[in-house]
Design a protein around this nucleic acid. Structure first.
Length: 869
RNA sequence: GGGCUCGUGGUCUAGUGGUUAUGACGCUUCCCUUACAAGGAAGAGAUCGGUGGUUCGACUCCGCCCGAGCCCA
């Protein structure tokens, strides 16, 4: 029995505990009909300690869907994955244990990661449960687990067998300090002091020479081309010639390309293997030679001739001084420029050439685009991001990462002929660094020594398999094919994703799963925006504007946070808002207080009541609620949480509490069965309708008032199918509103008695309700319009009809109306030489009451109040 | 630099060719009415980022400009 004030602190944690203890959200395993399974493929968050808004917000939106679908009778599969296979977890482990991963072999280090992450997983789980997310905690996985490693390697083997993967030498971003390859997203720009060296190059044919400016003279031995901008008229004649590199002597082509920056240096630029990103682009675009002059420890190679063996620092000094001696160094000046550095250690990155594995994409982009088109996108506009990403693809997907921790490639190479030997499917997962290859001798050349691949998979190569991990995809050695352990889950009904990461994560997942199953993995995709701070700026540690979910939930009810989270159109960013949270708190309190009242009024309410005997206002309320149910259901189906929330809130607060409840409470106290039945029926339905968003308070109310089971397992309400006179109801409420305003304007209390009220308008069946709630002694409905003098004040046109009919004549008609140069003849409006049909206009008039009492306008109705003195 | 998205009262937000532009928060005034004063009633407050164009008619469609965000370079 709800009583006193609502105490969210106690109530919310009570239900969170019970939901977990009672397995309220358990997925019913075994023989599930695919039609009634509703599966969510929630992207596993990186487990690195703290839970941030990205997690909390994304999962709250998923939870709205999960709870809604569950109540509609779906068997909801809402799993949770811990992504502890990434760089973040590697760093976490190193920091926590004060070790370096290089000091351990891979399996040992992974074991350490697993142990460290376990504590964080537990913390993470607890925090997710504190947010009331209806995850089935029996359905979890860790991306570092042997099972997931097996899935990842199986995916690799399958794609390799299908000819979708190949190995090629390609540039990798390398941190010489950490001695590891890093991805582009781990680099950042940094302003650094450096020097420009103006170096003279000779043209091979003839006497001419030109100058290039470089900050990295030590790359001269790696120079493979020289570039001139197409708009550079002064140097255009050089294009097609060859240049000779000072000191090193190699001859390289001079090529035209618009990526040359005319503003910097001399406008002529050398291209090396590899100085920067542009060098890589040029290498790929112009099919240039490779001259690898610097190795992974930053030491010059044989390509650098006499400078071989020097560190790049030392080599730079020597080369600069030798250039000077040779007269080729024309100038040296200090500058600052932007360099690409590793975000973790600040070291400038190098570009190395490595053998890497690729998944072929470019040949099937049309299919992948079509796959994306087959999914429902919420919001629809996000499909264009997917589309742009695919259409803009220029390279296949590199899945090699030169790190020591991660999931290893299940591959060995013949020590003699480099033939690729892939692990047997049955034996997965393997680690080639510890395990033997499946053959004793090379099938190609018979050689019996193998070199293990020591790279690991790109993290997306694993993250992109979550639908397959969740559906239990595996190799069946009996039938020799891949099978799904839980086929009913696939395709997944819902894939949630942050909009910042659609291109990486979602795209790769669609591609991988599509390749493995021939099917699009998702029926629908729901894209969520970012949580911004109160000033609409992105939260970041460096700005110091981060508000953590923990802080919020300790200050506000979780349901208030959920209410706030439902406040943006899906896909739009959501600004953090204390106001939004307070509005949520207010709604919770209103719902609680109204529930207390309903409870007090309906203890002996009839379970059943013949709808034909319902009083007009009760019938009207239930019919309006029918409409509201249809609206809320449609909004939730379309993931329009904000509209569902606001529509329901407004209907509950204003129509139910302010209008109906005020009237019905008097009747219910007088023992009116129709009112009691209606109050209880409507209230039950409200509790259910609010349940997906206000998960905790509705559970408390439901179990206190209606049922021992969870509201989250109760059936979503269906419309009762009642007919009612909506117009009369609306008019009656307008009359009540007008009377309230009258009392307010006349500084009367709301329960002040009114002597006599006359109503002209259709309020049949509502008369007693009006007089009851407004304390009217005598209420009379008029059959004839009261003594009113009407003054025509103008004519209103219905432009949606007049516009298409009269087009360019409309301004003339308007001018005629303005000048009052019109007539109404037989209901038609004659103006500016044309005749307008009756439905095209309305005569606007001001009504003046000349009889006794005061006239009020109440929608279509007219109300006359006669009140003492 | 390229692509995408967005710009509506002080703040957040609804509104994709046709009323007086929606609602919430905040603000002002009034009202203790036995569920709730953390409530109720009323009110003020917007030239819909700017500028051209299409149209009888533009917050809505198109061009350009300005500003913000995201992704890619």
């Amino acid at each position: 029995m709800p009583s006193g004030e609502y105490d969210p602190e106690t109530v919310e944690s009570k239900w969170q505990d019970r939901w977990v203890d009672e397995d309220t959200y358990a997925y019913a395993e075994g023989g599930v009909d695919p039609d009634t399974a509703f599966s969510i493929d929630s992207p596993p968050p990186t487990v690195s300690g703290s839970l941030h808004w990205g997690h909390a917000y994304g999962f709250t939106l998923q939870d709205f869907v999960a709870r809604f679908e569950r109540m509609r009778g779906e068997n909801v599969f809402f799993p949770f994955g811990f992504d502890d296979n990434g760089i973040a977890s590697e760093r976490l482990t190193e920091e926590e244990l004060d070790v370096r991963h290089q000091e351990y072999d891979r399996r040992e280090f992974q074991q350490m990661c697993r142990e460290v992450c376990e504590q964080y997983e537990a913390e993470f789980t607890e925090k997710m449960q504190q947010l009331g997310i209806s995850i089935d905690w029996e359905q979890t996985y860790q991306t570092i687990s042997p099972e997931v490693q097996r899935t990842s390697q199986l995916s690799f083997v399958e794609l390799y067998d299908e000819g979708r993967e190949y190995r090629q030498r390609a540039p990798a971003i390398w941190c010489p300090e950490c001695e590891t390859a890093i991805s582009q997203v781990e680099t950042e720009d940094d302003e650094q002091a450096s020097h420009f060296h103006d170096i003279e190059f000779d043209v091979v044919e003839g006497e001419e020479s030109f100058v290039i400016s470089t900050t990295r003279p030590e790359l001269l031995p790696a120079c493979v081309a020289v570039f001139v901008h197409p708009d550079d008229d002064d140097n255009q004649h050089l294009v097609g010639e060859e240049a000779r590199i000072p000191l090193f002597g190699q001859e390289v082509p001079i090529i035209e390309d618009e990526r040359v920056d005319l503003e910097t240096g001399s406008g002529i630029v050398m291209c090396c293997t590899f100085g920067d990103q542009t060098d890589i682009e040029w290498y790929q675009a112009h099919d240039l030679d490779l001259r690898i002059a610097i190795d992974e420890s930053g030491t010059l190679t044989d390509v650098a001739g006499e400078y071989s063996g020097l560190s790049s620092e030392d080599a730079r000094e020597r080369i600069v001084s030798d250039l000077d001696d040779a007269g080729a160094l024309l100038d040296k000046r200090a500058i600052t420029h932007t360099v690409n550095v590793h975000e973790r250690c600040g070291t400038s990155v190098e570009f190395l050439v490595k053998d890497q594995w690729y998944v072929e994409l470019l040949d099937k982009t049309d299919e992948y685009l079509e796959a994306g088109r087959q999914m429902d996108w919420y919001p629809e506009k996000m499909f264009t991001r997917y589309k742009n990403w695919i259409e803009g693809l220029q390279w296949d997907w590199s899945i090699s990462r030169q790190r020591s921790s991660g999931i290893p490639f299940p591959v060995w190479y013949c020590g003699e002929c480099e033939h690729v030997v892939v692990a047997e499917r049955e034996s997965l997962p393997v680690d080639p660094l510890s395990d033997d290859p499946p053959v004793d001798a090379c099938p190609e050349c018979g050689h019996d020594e193998f070199v293990p691949e020591d790279d690991v998979f790109d993290t997306w190569a694993t993250s992109s398999l979550t639908p397959l991990i969740n559906a239990g995809w595996d190799w069946d050695s009996e039938t020799e094919e891949t099978v799904l352990d839980r086929p009913e889950l696939y395709q997944f009904d819902l894939r949630p994703q942050g909009h910042d990461i659609i291109s990486f994560w979602l795209f790769h997942t669609v591609v991988k799963c599509y390749e493995h199953t021939g099917e699009v993995p998702f029926d629908s995709v729901m894209i969520n925006g970012m949580v911004l701070d109160e000033n609409r700026e992105k939260m970041s540690k460096s700005k110091g504007n981060v508000v953590s979910p923990d802080e919020v939930v300790s200050k506000y009810p979780v349901d208030a946070a959920r209410y706030w989270a439902a406040g943006s159109a899906v896909g739009d960013d959501l600004p953090y808002s204390e106001k939004g949270l307070r509005a949520g708190e207010k709604l919770i309190r209103k719902l609680w207080n109204a529930s207390k009242l309903v409870e007090g009024l309906t203890d002996d309410a009839p379970e059943e009541f013949d709808h034909a005997d319902l009083r007009a206002i009760d019938r009207w309320l239930l019919a309006e609620l029918d409409d509201q149910i249809e609206t809320v259901t449609a909004k939730l189906e379309n993931r329009e949480f904000s509209k569902a929330r606001d529509g329901l809130r407004s209907f509950f607060w204003h129509t139910f509490c302010d209008d109906y409840l005020e009237i019905a409470k008097g009747r219910a106290r007088d023992g009116d069965a129709s009112a009691k039945y209606t109050l209880q029926t409507a209230h039950r339905r409200f509790v259910k309708l609010f349940a997906p968003v206000l998960a905790h308070v509705t559970e408390e109310l439901w179990r206190e008032m209606y049922d021992e089971g969870s509201v989250h397992r109760a059936a979503w309400p269906e419309p009762l199918g009642l007919e009612a006179d909506f117009a009369a109801g609306e008019t009656a409420m307008a009359v009540v509103g007008a009377l309230r305003k009258y009392k307010s304007d006349n500084q009367l209390s709301m329960n002040a008695e009114l002597d006599r009220v006359q109503v002209w308008g259709s309020v049949q069946g509502f008369e007693d309700d009006i007089s009851g709630v407004m304390h009217v002694e005598e209420l009379e409905t008029l059959d004839e319009e009261p003594q009113i003098e009407s003054v025509v004040t103008g004519v209103d046109l219905d432009y949606s009809l007049v516009g298409p009919e009269f087009g360019a004549q409309v301004p003339d008609i308007e001018a005629a109306l303005e000048d009052e140069a019109y007539d109404v003849v037989d209901g038609e409006l004659h103006a500016a030489g044309v005749e307008l049909a009756p439905e095209m206009f309305t005569i606007e008039e001001e009504r003046k009451y000349v009889g006794e009492g005061e006239m009020l306008e109440a929608g279509d109705a007219v109300v006359i109040v006669q009140h003492g003195d």
